[in-house]
C-alpha cells in the first residue's frame, strides 16, 4: 500500500469530481427535454378533459385558494366573450394505495368536460381500470344537478367496475368535491379580473 491516507483521499476525490462534472453536463443537456415532457403531459391532460378547447398552460391559468387552504391552479380557456372552460387538479386521498391525482375539466355551466387520471398507484388489474376511457367517459356531461356523484354501490349513479369499488369511489368522491368547489367559487374562477377572495 503506497501513499497511505493522502492517496485514498485523492483518488476518491478525483472520482467524485469526475462524476459530478459528468452529471452536471448530462443534467444541462436533459433539462430542457424533461421540462418539455412535463409541459406536454399537462397539455395532453388538458386536451383530454376539455376536448376542442385550447389552453396554453404557461399563461392561461389562475392560482386560487382551495377548500383546505391549499392553492389550486385553475387552467382557463377563453374566447372573446370570456371563459369557455376551466381545468384543475384534484387529489383523491382515499384510494387503495396512495393518492390518485385527477385532472378535471369543467364547463362554465358546471358540467364536466371530462376527467383524466394523472397518476395513481392502485393495484394493477383491479383498481387500474379507472384509467380506461370506457370508465372515464362516464363523467362527461355530468354535473351536481343531473347526477348523484357516488358509485352505484353507495346508491349513486356512477358505475363501479366489477371487483373494484374503492378506486372508483375515491375518484368519484374527489370529482364531486371538485365540482362543489367550482360551484362555491364559480364567480371567482370565471371572472375576467383577478379578484381577491
Amino acid at each position: 500500500m503506497k501513499g497511505g491516507m493522502a492517496r485514498l483521499i485523492l483518488v476518491l476525490g478525483a472520482i467524485c469530481f469526475a462524476s459530478g462534472f459528468g452529471l452536471a453536463m448530462v443534467y444541462e443537456i436533459t433539462k430542457e427535454p424533461i421540462a418539455y415532457q412535463k409541459k406536454l403531459e399537462v397539455i395532453r391532460s388538458l386536451a383530454a378533459v376539455l376536448p376542442g378547447l385550447e389552453i396554453d398552460p404557461d399563461s392561461q391559468y389562475r392560482d386560487l385558494a382551495g377548500k383546505d387552504g391549499d392553492t389550486v391552479r385553475v387552467f382557463r380557456s377563453e374566447d372573446g366573450d370570456g371563459v369557455v372552460g376551466v381545468a384543475f387538479q384534484v387529489i383523491a386521498p382515499d384510494g387503495y394505495s396512495g393518492n390518485i391525482y385527477i385532472m378535471m375539466g369543467v364547463l362554465p355551466d358546471g358540467t364536466l368536460g371530462g376527467i383524466e387520471i394523472l397518476s395513481h398507484a392502485e393495484t394493477p388489474g383491479l383498481g387500474a381500470p379507472i384509467t380506461e376511457e370506457r370508465w372515464k367517459g362516464i363523467f362527461k356531461g355530468r354535473s351536481l344537478e343531473n347526477t348523484d356523484l357516488r358509485v352505484k354501490k353507495d346508491g349513486g349513479d356512477i358505475d363501479q367496475m366489477t371487483g373494484a369499488t374503492i378506486s372508483p369511489r375515491a375518484v368519484t368522491g374527489a370529482v364531486k368535491k371538485g365540482l362543489e368547489w367550482f360551484r362555491d367559487n364559480r364567480d371567482n374562477i370565471l371572472s375576467a379580473e383577478e379578484a381577491s377572495s
Binding site: G22, L23, V26, Y27, T30, P33, I34, Q37
Partner: peptide, 10 residues
C-alpha cells in the same frame, strides 16, 4: 443517474 435523466427526457 445518467440513465434516469435520459429516460425522463426521451
Amino acid at each position: 443517474t445518467i440513465v434516469d435523466l435520459t429516460m425522463a427526457a426521451w
